[in-house]
Each structure stands twice: as C-alpha cells, then as structure tokens.
Design a protein around this nucleic acid. Structure first.
Lengths: 119, 119
DNA sequence: CAAGATTGAGAAATCAATCTTG
DNA sequence: CAAGATTGATTTCTCAATCTTG
C-alpha cells in the first residue's frame, strides 16, 4: 500500500488526514483532526506542515475562535485524496481476498472486542 | 504495554531485540538480527546504538568474518529482557482475556491467512 | 564486484514546555 | 487559569549512498 501511495506523493498518515478533512466537508480545526486521527496534537501540527508544503492543505485562523487553526483542503488535496482512496481500496481488496465471507465476519467481531474504541 | 516497559527504560523495539539475542544464546551478527526483527539493517544499527548507550548490549567484531559486528547481551541486558518479558506477558494476558477460546482459535487461523510470512 | 555495516536525510510519532487567546 | 497550537528533543523507521572487508 505504502509504495503505491508513494507514486502520487502520499503516505498512509497523509491520506488519513486528507480523508478526515474530506469527510468533514473540506476543513476542520487541527485539534479536532487530532481526535479523528487518534494521535497527539503536535503530530498533527507536523503532518499539516508537510501537507501544506505539498500544497494539499492550507492553514487559516478559525473566525469563531482565534486560538484555533483550520486545516483546509485545496483543490489539489481533494484530487490527491480521491486518487489515494482508489489506490487504497484496490490494495485492501487484494489482501482480504484470501478470507471467506464468514472469516471476514469473525474478524470484524474479534476486532470489535480487542479494540472497542476504534469501532 | 509501552508505558509499562518505559518504567524500566525499555520500549517494544528494544525488548524485541533483546529477546532475539536471548533466543540466540546472547549474541548475533547485526545483519541476522535485522532478519529476525523483519526490518532494515540501518534500523538495527541505530537500535543497537541506543541499547549500547543503555549498557544492555555491546558490539564486537565477528572473529569469523571481520566485516560483521556481533551484538552481545550484557548482564544488565539479560536482566532487563527477563523483566521486560514479564511485563509484556502480563499486559497481553489482560488484552486477550476479552476473547473466548473459540475466538482465539479463529483469530489465529485468520492471521495465518492474512500474514502467512509471519507464522 | 558482494556483503556487512554505517551515515545522512527525511517521515512519523510522542512528550514536555511554551505561546497565544478565551 | 484552560484550551489550541507550536516548538524542541527523542525514538523509530525507511531509503540512498558510502565505507570496509571478502
């Protein structure tokens, strides 16, 4: 997955951030993004630094609360996200093709018990 | 797991390296260690750098092949490994206690299909 | 030249400390 | 003061390039 994403300049953490922004309609405060990505705020600060360098995201002061910064998807960011998701889906399909439908259900049930906070 | 290991100055990668060295009787060439840890050689170089700083491992030239360096467990390294394994086992037992015996078997079967190379 | 290891650069993640704003 | 974000330091990991020895 990683090597294929790299061909379009993305990585798993970068794509995850772009997806959360897309889910939220294109922008989100950095703190909220940290919550969605299940990581620490300083991590998001640096991740957005890199995405901003890539031209996929822009920062802007939150008009409502001036302490907060919004991460905003650019047009290039939107495009990269769509292409990244396509690559990701293809790779996932290949990996899980080795499981039967019943095994997939069992796995889902087991994961929900091992990691209840992520479901 | 990580926070508990941190109380004795270890981390998951550090403990993994100490365990592989213990398995091998106390010493191993760095390249071979990289194979066992399923990572790249440069990664092991740095990991052993830190373990050497901690006094848990020592480097030595391989008498057989002078290109190769051996990572050798110190007494402190052996002790830290034992204590780390104890901490790890306790934590794992707690996590998997939420699964039934049948679910544990199903998980083992599923993992063997998803990651055949690691079994 | 190959194989073992190291170095340098960069991505990713965490923590503690700090700065700004509410 | 508390909340949002950033900075600096450290760990971990990868890759490409290099050095040494076989």
């Amino acid at each position: 997955v990683e090597s294929r994403l790299a061909t379009i300049g993305l990585s798993i953490p970068k794509l995850a951030a772009l997806q959360r922004l897309t889910d939220a309609g294109g922008s989100m405060p950095l703190g909220q993004l940290a919550g969605r990505l299940a990581c620490v705020k300083s991590n998001v600060t640096q991740l957005i630094d890199r995405l901003e360098t890539d031209g996929l995201v822009q920062r802007s002061v939150d008009p409502v609360d001036k302490r907060s910064r919004l991460a905003i998807l650019t047009e290039a960011g939107r495009t990269a996200c769509e292409e990244g998701v396509r690559i990701q889906r293809t790779a996932e399909t290949e990996v899980f093709a080795s499981l039967s439908q019943e095994e997939a259900s069992q796995l889902a049930e087991i994961i929900s018990k091992l990691a209840p906070h992520h479901c």
